[in-house]
Design a protein around this nucleic acid. Structure first.
Lengths: 129, 129
DNA sequence: CGCACTCTCCTACATAAGTCATAGACTCTA
DNA sequence: TAGAGTCTATGACTTATGTAGGAGAGTGCG
């Protein structure tokens, strides 16, 4: 099974473009960046090549002289990896992170209520392996 | 006002030691690492010096020939910075992170309930600046 | 066909982070 | 005071990431 690496600051928005766009040429990827933060064409190219080396994307086909790249890992899986890694810094516990989110007002009551109902639903389905 | 940098993988446990211990010599810091993952003395030293350069710690005093270092930023503030940065990768929204935490079973119902009561309490106190 | 354009491929460089060894200054005890 | 032991200070190396230029191959229009 593929080991998903932790996507970096720049890799993530590149993958976002691929997740959203399905399969894109290098040229199309930087277009999803806000123009002030848009990296150079070859910068994106380098990152895509490196993502390819990490087996996170691959060349799906070639149109004219341009390669078309496609994501090989799901957004879900990549996000999970990211979150796992992040949580590890807090001893693997979600609680301190939650506490921070609440104290700094980034979680609304509705967010929590939604979370609660989702959790109850999952529990009812016996989703605990 | 001090700009708190994003503490890295190794910097964070070093700061943890200082937060927990109050003020420590270099020698004492690696002791809080599990022995399998304990970095060399000078590795810790380098990191502490760099943290000093970033104004995150400072030399409180000198005991005999050893410097005693102390944290200059609170755990709270450092964690907030870390979380802000992390959330930025998800468009600044906590919701997708919550969803992941729930789906991967890292948030218990109790965690959520605690969060909810905390949030209600804060709301009642009108804690919105 | 030939030229303009696009894309690939390779190379390069800077900074940050993690890793540690070594030399020499300092301290304390016998 | 002299030796043993401890710390500091400094330098060095590696890997990862972000950044991009330039040469040359490939494509398609006029």
């Amino acid at each position: 099974m593929a080991k998903i690496p932790n996507l970096t600051r720049l890799e993530l928005p590149i993958m976002d473009a691929l997740w959203a766009g399905g399969a894109l040429s290098i040229r199309e990827i930087p277009q999803s960046f806000p123009s002030e933060k848009r990296p150079a064409y070859t910068t994106v190219q380098t990152m895509v090549y490196r993502l390819e080396g990490k087996k996170v994307v691959h060349r799906l086909k070639k149109i004219s002289n341009a390669h078309i790249f496609e994501a090989l890992v799901s957004r879900q899986a990549a996000q999970r990896r990211l979150i796992d890694d992040f949580l590890a810094r807090f001893g693997g516990k979600a609680q301190p992170v939650m506490a921070q989110l609440i104290e700094t007002g980034r979680l609304s009551l509705k967010d929590i209520e939604d979370a609660e109902s989702t959790l109850r639903r999952l529990a009812k389905q016996g989703k605990q392996p």
